[in-house]
Computed example of a mutant assay.
Amino acid sequence: MRYAGIDIGSRTIELVIVDDAGKIIGSLQAETGFDPMTRARKMIEELPYDYIMATGYGRNLFEIAFDTPTVTEIKAHAVGARFYFNEATTVLDIGGQDSKALSIHDNGKVKKFEMNDRCAAGTGKFMEIMARTLGFDIASFGGEALHFKKELKISSMCTVFAESEVTSLIAKGHSPQDIAMGLHKSVISRVAGMIKRVSGEGNIVFTGGVAHNQCMQKLLADKLDRQVLVPDDPQLVGALGAALLARDTA
Rank of each mutant, 00 (worst) to 15 (best):
E163W: 00
I188L: 14
A4F: 10
V160Q: 01
D225C: 04
P36V: 00
E114C: 03
L240Q: 06
R190F: 12
L183P: 09
A101W: 10
M115N: 03
A131Y: 07
E87P: 02
K185M: 13
G182N: 08
Q227K: 15
A171W: 00
S189I: 01
K75E: 14
Q235W: 04
R11T: 13
M130N: 04
I188G: 11
H174K: 01
M216F: 15
D248F: 04
D178I: 03
T207P: 14
M43R: 03
N86T: 11
I204N: 06
P231D: 07
A65V: 01
C215D: 07
N107G: 03
T249F: 06
D222P: 02
D248R: 13
D117V: 03
E73S: 02
L229R: 05
R11I: 03
G56D: 11
D248A: 15
D19N: 15
V187L: 12
S189W: 03
A81D: 12
R11M: 03
I24M: 15
C215L: 05
G22T: 07
I170K: 15
E128N: 12
A250W: 09
G208I: 01
G142H: 10
D7A: 05
G26M: 08
T159C: 07
T72E: 05
I17K: 02
K218E: 01
Q227D: 12
A192F: 06
A121S: 11
K153N: 04
N107Y: 05
I195S: 14
V71R: 09
P176D: 02
M37L: 13
F141H: 11
L146K: 15
A221M: 02
I104W: 13
L244P: 03
D67A: 07
Q217T: 10
H105M: 09
G182A: 10
T38L: 15
A81Y: 11
G173V: 00
D248C: 01
A81K: 09
M157T: 09
V18G: 08
D19V: 04
R132H: 14
V18P: 12
V205W: 13
A239R: 04
Y3G: 13
T123I: 07
V160E: 01
M1C: 08
D20M: 05
R132M: 12
I195W: 12
L15E: 06
D93T: 10
V71W: 08
A246K: 05
A171S: 09
R247G: 07
H77F: 03
E63N: 09
T133H: 09
D35Q: 06
I44D: 05
F113H: 15
A81G: 14
Q214P: 08
D248E: 15
